[in-house]
Design a protein around this nucleic acid. Structure first.
Length: 271
DNA sequence: AGAAGGCCCTGCGTGC
DNA sequence: TGCACGCAGGGCCTTC
C-alpha cells in the first residue's frame, strides 16, 4: 500500500479500465466512471484491505487475495501485448498505469463511501488491528475465551485479530513458544502476555523488511520483500530449530495441516 | 451458534 | 519431455 501511495497519492486518474466482468465478485457498477477524473487523496489499510480515497467521497476497496499484485509502470514502457491476468487498471495524468494483476482471481475490488468505509460488509466484522496500542493481552484473552478451536485457526480468524495470515501466525506462535495445536481458550495469562508482543514484533519486522515474497508478492515498483529470509519456522520443515540447538529432544521444525492449511512449529519448544 | 471443510482459480514444482 | 498430482501469503459460504 505504501508503494502504491507513493505512485498515486495526489495524482489525478485520467481513465480506468476493466478487462473482465469479475474477480472474486463482479466489479462494482460505475467503478471506471467514478475513477475517471478523480484525484487520489490518500490511502488507508484495514486488516488486509487497502482503501484508496478519492475526491468525490468514494473509496476503492482492494484485497490482493493470494496472488494479487498492483503493478505500476510508465505507459511508454508498456509491452505491446496485453499484460497477463491484468483485470483492472487505471492511468494517471502523468502517464503512469497501475494494474491489478491476479492470476488466481481471489482478490477483490469494490467501491464504498469514504464516510462509511468501516460499515462495508467486508470490514464490519473485523477484529482489532494488532499494531494498535489497544491490542493488548487482556483484549486477546477475551477474544479467545471459550474458543475450542486450535489457536492456529483462531489467529487466522480475522474477527479475532485483523491482518494475520498463514505465515505470520506460525512465526508469532513460535516466538511465543505456543503450540499451534493448543486449544484457543487455554491461551490466556502468561501465554497471551508472550503472544501479543510476538505478533507485533513479527508484523513490524516483516513490514520493515518489505514483506514476504514467496512467488507472487511484489511491491508496486516490482521490488520484492525479504522477510522470507528471516522465517524461523514457516516452510522450514525438517530444519533445525534455532531455539534448541543440539538438544537431542528437538527433532527440528515439523509441518502439520490444520483446517486445510500448513502449520510449522517446534514440538519441543512450543507447548 | 460455533467449528470444519469445500470451493473459487491458476501456476509451479515434484515424481513417475 | 509429458502428465498427473499436490500445494500455494485468503476468506466466503454451506454444512454439520
Amino acid at each position: 500500500m505504501r508503494g502504491l501511495a507513493a505512485v498515486l497519492e495526489g495524482r489525478v486518474i485520467r481513465a480506468a479500465s476493466i478487462s473482465r466482468p469479475a474477480m472474486r465478485w463482479p466489479f462494482p457498477e460505475g467503478l471506471a466512471a467514478r475513477l475517471a477524473g478523480a484525484s487520489v487523496e490518500g490511502f488507508r489499510r484495514r486488516a488486509k484491505y487497502m482503501l484508496m480515497r478519492l475526491s468525490g467521497g468514494d473509496s476503492v476497496l482492494i484485497h490482493l487475495g493470494m496472488s494479487g499484485r498492483m503493478v505500476a509502470r510508465r505507459v511508454e514502457d508498456l509491452p505491446n501485448e496485453p499484460i497477463a491476468h491484468e483485470h483492472f487498471a487505471m492511468e494517471t495524468e502523468e502517464g503512469i498505469r497501475v494494474g491489478f494483476v491476479d492470476p488466481r482471481r481471489f482478490g477483490s475490488v469494490d467501491l464504498v463511501r469514504t464516510a462509511s468505509e468501516d460499515q462495508h460488509r467486508l470490514l464490519a466484522g473485523l477484529g482489532p488491528e494488532p499494531l494498535e496500542e489497544a491490542f493488548t493481552p487482556a483484549l486477546l484473552s477475551v477474544a479467545l475465551a471459550g474458543k475450542q478451536t486450535p489457536i492456529k485457526a483462531a489467529l487466522l480468524d480475522q474477527k479475532v485479530v485483523a491482518g494475520l495470515g498463514n505465515i505470520y501466525v506460525s512465526e508469532a506462535l513460535y516466538r511465543a513458544r505456543i503450540s499451534p495445536r493448543r486449544v484457543a481458550a487455554s491461551v490466556a495469562g502468561a501465554r497471551t502476555v508472550r503472544l501479543v508482543p510476538a505478533i507485533k514484533a513479527v508484523l513490524e519486522e516483516s513490514i520493515a523488511a518489505g514483506g514476504s515474497s514467496l512467488r507472487d508478492y511484489v511491491h508496486a515498483d516490482g521490488g520484492i520483500g525479504f522477510f522470507q529470509e528471516r522465517f524461523r519456522v514457516y516452510d522450514r520443515e525438517g530444519l533445525p530449530c534455532e531455539a534448541c540447538p543440539g538438544l537431542p529432544a528437538c527433532e527440528g521444525i515439523k509441518r502439520i495441516v490444520q483446517s486445510g492449511r500448513a502449520s510449522f512449529y517446534c514440538p519441543r519448544l512450543q507447548r
